[in-house]
Design a protein around this nucleic acid. Structure first.
Lengths: 167, 167
DNA sequence: TGATTTTAGATGACATGTCAACTAAGTAGT
DNA sequence: ACTACTTAGTTGACATGTCATCTAAAATCA
């Protein structure tokens, strides 16, 4: 109540929030109707398909897509039940597992990638001018730095790896 | 694979997705630590506090914040159990209910509003220049129109009300 | 080697969200 | 008034996400 409200800021937050929400819903619906998978499925499948051997350690997936370990574990269990991937023993480190794409999962993700790319283009890229895209990229970086200030302590002098949400 | 990829578009999507996700998490954490409520709680409580009688019909809440009816109903049930609000019979229309803020809920939301506003400022507004804010508002509108093209049929010639996600 | 601490991952309890019925009350059309 | 249709809201089954906890296998160190 006490902060001076710059004109349009409330409207900006309103429209920006609506956009985030609707974009997320639209991408979810799109992926569901095009490839019968969820965004969560897609995030994991794309991480796997990008990997040379089409397999990754569970924890590595968590780091790549910025999820909690337990979330990855639950999701893997569900996807395994649907035959999209499977767990393999890990020789190097008997504590770990390999998460490997199945033929089924490979088919799904290959079918989804193009559709997903098209949806991103249709809903997002094509709506914007080059200048707007550049501004949004820069603004996103600034907001990220605000939320999660780059740590510069003696342990990790190089910039910490930022979580990746989607492809 | 076949679409020409404009330079930086993949990076734009990556950083933009990370920003959306981290901003959402940050707002959630902030509200939780400042006022011990979730974003979902806050969305409902703020809709109620803004209303003259501090009460709204359930379906009206759904329209205001853009949720499904059943989601509102479940959320109301949980918030009622925590004493943030309560259901009242609706004289006008015996099918409906009034959702009314309790003293407890009023206290919670009053405490949360300023913190929420401060968080939006800190994480979002303060990170951006005036020009960036204007660009983002305009870009958000364009993306929204892409996703959900304004309906212009004979029934609703005026622009359809757009769902509101947050305050 | 043996004790202690880390790390990888799984699991169960619980909160939240979606979808598809379901109930009950208002609204029309005859 | 009688029937059919619509609307408001609830409910239960189920998917998803978080947190705390657990097990087992490294890794560290005396």
């Amino acid at each position: 109540m006490k902060d001076a409200e710059y004109p349009g800021e409330q409207e900006l937050w309103r429209v920006f929030s609506a956009m985030r929400r609707q974009l997320e819903l639209a991408m979810e619906r799109r992926l569901q109707s095009d490839a019968a998978i969820s965004t969560a499925d897609f995030d994991i499948l794309s991480a796997l398909i990008e990997e040379p051997g089409h397999r990754l350690r569970s924890g590595r997936i968590a780091d790549l897509i910025g999820w909690e370990r337990s979330r990855v574990s639950h999701q893997i269990t569900r996807m395994q039940q649907r035959g999209l991937l499977h767990r393999q023993e890990c020789g190097d480190d008997a504590r770990g597992v390999w998460i490997a794409l199945s033929a089924n999962g490979r088919r799904s993700v290959l079918g989804a990638v193009d559709e997903h790319r098209a949806a991103v283009r249709e809903y997002f890229f094509d709506a914007l001018t080059e200048e707007e895209k550049a501004t949004i990229a820069e603004a996103s970086r600034k907001v990220l730095d605000r939320i999660n200030p780059p740590v510069c302590d003696e342990i990790a002098p190089s910039s910490a790896p930022r979580a990746r949400a989607n492809v």
